[in-house]
Structures are given as C-alpha cells and as structure tokens.
Simulated assay, not measured.
Amino acid sequence: MGTSGKDKQIDYVEFNVKDIARARGFYGDAFGWTFTDYGADYCEFSDGNLKGGFARSAGGKPGGPLVILFADDLGDTLKRVESAGGKIVKPIFDFPGGRRFHFTDPEGYELAVWSDK
C-alpha cells in the first residue's frame, strides 16, 4: 500500500455553526473563501490553500474549530491514538468521501482523523 504524502498531518478544519448561510456570508465577504454544499447540514470551504467545513450544530456549542488529521491507515492510527493515551469519542464512521473517528487528547482537546480508504 502506498502512502499519500500527508499521513498524520493536519488536513482539514471544521467549524460547528448554527447558521451555515451566515457563516458562508461572513467568510466569503471577509476573506473571499469559496464553498461547496453537501446538503443542508454541511458546507465545505476553501481559502485557496486549506479546505475545511461548516457543520450545522443544532444544540451544540459553536466556536472552537475541529482540527482533522489525515491517515493512510485509519485503523492503525486509532490504535496509536489509544496507545498514546487518547480517548475515542466517536468510533470510525463513514461519510461522503471516506471514514473518520474523533478522539480527545490527554488535555481534553477533541480532534478527528480521516482517511479516503
């Protein structure tokens, strides 16, 4: 199996927002970002260098972006996260484009890891 060249690197950032249209308007007007909609609850953005997303958060807490890392081998990375002291808070799940899991690090920060495999 080949590697992507971005294994274990920060690859994506997600913002939990209550109003995707408002977030699009702000970041589009203020910074010129472009957008791709994936249904009513998700919108991907691009700043020309980094991609990220706005995820609708009905009752959740807005703010505090979710940093997402990429892994060539998602299962192995999950094991490494657990072995290093991380706590899995969302087991591996499928989404359009791949699979991912969420974890908290020993300091309590939530991050995610995704793979296109």
Rank of each mutant, 00 (worst) to 15 (best):
G2L: 12
T3D: 10
G5P: 02
D7E: 10
Q9K: 09
Q9F: 04
I10E: 07
D11V: 08
D11P: 00
V13R: 01
E14R: 03
F15M: 05
N16C: 06
V17C: 06
D19V: 03
D19M: 03
D19H: 00
I20L: 11
A21C: 06
Y27N: 07
Y27C: 10
Y27R: 05
G28V: 10
G28F: 01
D29P: 00
A30T: 12
F31A: 14
G32C: 08
W33Y: 10
W33R: 07
T34A: 06
F35R: 08
F35D: 11
F35Y: 01
T36P: 01
T36D: 12
D37M: 04
Y38H: 12
G39C: 15
G39D: 11
G39R: 07
A40P: 05
A40T: 12
D41W: 00
D41G: 08
Y42D: 11
C43E: 12
F45L: 06
S46K: 05
S46Q: 09
S46F: 07
S46C: 10
D47V: 02
D47S: 03
D47Q: 08
G48E: 14
G48M: 12
G48V: 02
L50W: 13
L50Q: 15
G52I: 08
G53T: 09
G53V: 03
A55P: 00
A55W: 07
R56P: 01
R56Q: 02
S57C: 09
A58H: 05
G59H: 06
G60T: 04
K61F: 02
K61V: 13
P62V: 15
P62I: 13
G63W: 06
G63H: 02
G64H: 01
P65H: 06
L66W: 04
L66I: 15
L66N: 06
V67E: 05
I68E: 05
L69Q: 08
F70Y: 13
A71S: 12
A71W: 06
A71L: 09
A71Y: 05
D72C: 11
G75C: 03
D76T: 10
K79P: 00
K79G: 04
R80A: 15
V81D: 10
E82T: 12
E82M: 15
S83T: 14
S83I: 02
G85M: 04
G85P: 01
G86T: 03
G86M: 00
I88C: 02
I88S: 05
V89R: 03
K90S: 10
K90V: 02
P91C: 13
I92Q: 11
I92K: 08
I92W: 03
D94R: 03
D94N: 14
D94E: 14
F95T: 15
P96K: 13
G97V: 01
G98T: 11
R99G: 01
R99H: 09
R99C: 10
R99Y: 01
R100L: 07
R100T: 06
R100V: 04
F101W: 00
F103G: 13
F103P: 11
D105C: 11
D105F: 09
G108H: 07
G108P: 11
Y109G: 11
A112N: 05
V113R: 14
W114F: 14
W114C: 15
S115C: 08
K117I: 09
K117N: 07
